[in-house]
């Protein structure tokens, strides 16, 4: 995972220009100049794959952060303020019943494409799962005697929330965010593949797979390179989530 991030961030330093086209070098096999060969427009597949990682990571991370913050806010409110609970959760149920991709497509077609709007479109469908998780964590903690003890000690609501309730939602939230991140990367690839995601000139794995599917038999690397990267990236993010869970789970630490 760390390797992928470093590779993606350092992309401009070593990879060639992902946008420059060379009509005479279309669908070339791998060579010293272009490690993964070139695609149908003569662009460097290696460079495009590496730059695609930046897009994927950015979309994944920003969506995860967005969903985590949004979910935390809504979840804590729903969990602690009883009056909002029913309304918020019914809205979330409604959101949840719409398939992620359809909702994202709908949002994008309303506003037009672009990376920023794409992130928002991916984040919103992820909100319900995060909110649900935060809410259930808050609900289980707010009944704990130590929260009651804080209230009877005269603590104000913000302090109770900040000091006693939030810390115990962080662990599951991190784990959930990792899952959201992986999901967002896949969704972005899916949307780009369908042509409603990132604009086609920007290198993204979904775009690459989409544009190269016609040339699968001629230049297999044009599709396998981003495809495999996508799989590795999602796996890495999921493993990171597992690692976070083990790190934060007090039961695993106490060992009794």
């Amino acid at each position: 995972m760390a390797l992928l991030i470093v590779l993606a961030l350092a992309a401009p330093l070593y990879a060639g220009d992902p946008l420059s086209m060379d009509p005479f070098k279309r669908l070339q096999p791998p060579s010293a100049e272009m490690w993964f060969g070139s695609d149908n427009l003569g662009r460097d597949v290696f460079a495009r794959t590496i730059f695609g990682a930046r897009i994927s990571l950015m979309v994944g991370l920003l969506s995860a952060v967005g969903a985590a913050l949004g979910g935390l806010l809504i979840g804590v409110i729903a969990g602690y303020v009883r009056a909002f609970d029913n309304i918020v959760m019914r809205v979330m149920d409604g959101l949840m019943s719409i398939p992620t991709i359809l909702l994202a497509i709908a949002l994008i077609s309303l506003t037009g494409s672009g990376v920023g709007i794409l992130i928002v479109a991916i984040t919103i469908p992820q909100l319900p799962s995060v909110t649900r998780m935060v809410r259930s964590a808050v609900l289980s903690v707010r009944e704990r005697p130590y929260v009651e003890a804080a209230v009877s000690g005269g603590a104000r609501l913000p302090k109770v929330l900040w000091r006693h309730i939030l810390p115990s939602t962080i662990a599951p939230l991190m784990v959930q965010s990792a899952i959201v991140c992986a999901d967002a990367i896949l969704t972005e690839a899916g949307l780009s593949f369908l042509g409603v995601g990132v604009p086609p000139e920007i290198p993204s794995w979904g775009n690459m797979i989409s544009s190269s599917r016609l040339y699968l038999s001629i230049a297999p690397l044009t599709i396998f390179a981003p495809g495999i990267c996508l799989a590795v990236m999602v796996l890495a993010v999921n493993l990171l989530g597992d690692g976070l869970r083990d790190l934060f789970d007090p039961r695993a630490k106490r060992g009794r």
Binding site: R144, P145, Y146, E148, A149, A150, S152, G153, G154, R156, R163, H164, P167, S168, P250
Partner: peptide, 21 residues
């Protein structure tokens, strides 16, 4: 809140009534 200073509570379970963090 001010009144709560006059009256305090000791809970049953010495494990869950203290914030573990």
């Amino acid at each position: 809140r001010a009144w709560r200073r006059r009256m305090q509570m000791v809970f049953q379970d010495p494990y869950s009534s203290l914030n573990p963090r």
